[in-house]
């Protein structure tokens, strides 16, 4: 991730602040920055979303294609993740610099979605063993200001909510050759159930306490963070320790508990906002990239 340099005195200031539950910008240890979410920003995709969390901007586009199901699971579709850290975000990502970070982010996404309940993959099947829907989820990092994982997971959930997969109709003629027909009506599509899609919460350990939604400066003051992805029911799908330092087992248990609590509380406002946005329909003022 893009790093800023901080002096020793600044680190001490930030640490004492976190200890007193007053961060540099006045937030408490468990407060998120101002977040703005918008879906359906890119018209060529089947689903898209843009999230800005502070100065971090993430754009997610989802395209659904018809492909062959994996040999071990013939009756399910699957998702493919790709994260691109463009040099727009910060000059450190120029050339191949952003590739490492992009690979780390996509590997984490694979792990987060590596369970049966996040997304009902069986609904993506068209014809068992022959055709299925493959969802290509492409994440683009436009601006980087810390806390990439959280913003990315929220954007993916919003984009999946917005995804409209056209309904297909299999017709078989006399010789047994199967033909796929897309329905003519552009509004006749299938939506995904994103109730169980998890959200990632990154907790940074600074001195003896941990903070949610750390800025780049706060990240430079911490040596270890815990990434935890939580569904709306409170089930944990992925836990990772990031950073160069080690964690005490008690801190891990504390951080897991906080992460679960914060993660669970993220889902309700997000679904409410997405549904409000959808109910606005045509009247919605499309902002896109102008703000």
């Amino acid at each position: 991730m893009a790093t800023v340099q901080v002096s020793e005195a600044e680190k001490v200031y930030v640490m004492h602040g976190v200890r007193d539950d007053l961060r540099v910008d006045g937030r408490g240890c468990e407060d998120y920055r101002h977040m703005e979410i918008e879906t359906d920003v890119v018209s060529n995709t089947d689903g898209s979303a843009k999230v800005s969390l502070g100065h971090t901007d993430i754009l997610v586009g989802i395209k659904a294609e018809i492909g062959k199901p994996r040999p071990m699971v013939p009756d399910e579709g699957y998702l493919e993740f790709f994260v691109d850290c463009s040099a727009n975000a910060t000059p450190e990502f120029e050339g191949r610099g952003g590739e490492e970070l992009g690979v780390e982010l996509s590997n984490t996404l694979y792990k987060v979605f590596n369970n049966r309940h996040s997304l009902d993959l069986r609904s993506l099947c068209i014809c068992p063993g022959e055709h299925c829907w493959v969802l290509y989820v492409d994440v683009l990092l436009l601006q980087c200001d810390g806390n990439l994982f959280d913003a990315m997971s929220i954007a993916i959930k919003a984009a999946l909510f917005n995804t409209r997969i056209p309904k297909v109709h299999i017709s078989e003629d006399e010789e047994g050759v199967k033909e796929i027909e897309l329905s003519d009506d552009p509004y006749d599509c299938m939506r995904l159930n994103v109730e169980n899609v998890p959200c990632i919460v990154t907790l940074c350990k600074i001195a003896h306490r941990h903070v949610v939604d750390a800025t780049l400066q706060e990240k430079a003051c911490s040596v270890a963070s815990l990434l935890i992805s939580v569904t709306h029911k409170g089930m944990v799908t992925c836990v990772r320790k990031l950073g160069r330092g080690s964690l005490d087992p008690d801190s891990i248990f504390e951080m897991t508990e906080t992460g679960k609590r914060v993660g669970k509380a993220l889902h309700a406002p997000l679904m409410e906002l997405l549904q409000k946005e959808e109910s606005l329909g045509k009247k919605r003022q499309k902002v896109g990239f102008l703000a």
Binding site: K111, V112, N114, N115, R116, H117, S118, L226, T231, G234, M235, V236, T237, C238, V239, R240, K241, S246, L247, D248, P249, I252, F253, T256, E257, K260
Partner: peptide, 19 residues
């Protein structure tokens, strides 16, 4: 030191099971 230096979990578990 009894310090955890790496932790990786995936799948879907309850928090107390994870602990």
């Amino acid at each position: 030191f009894n310090q955890v230096s790496g932790l990786h979990a995936d799948g879907e578990m309850r928090e107390d099971t994870l602990t």
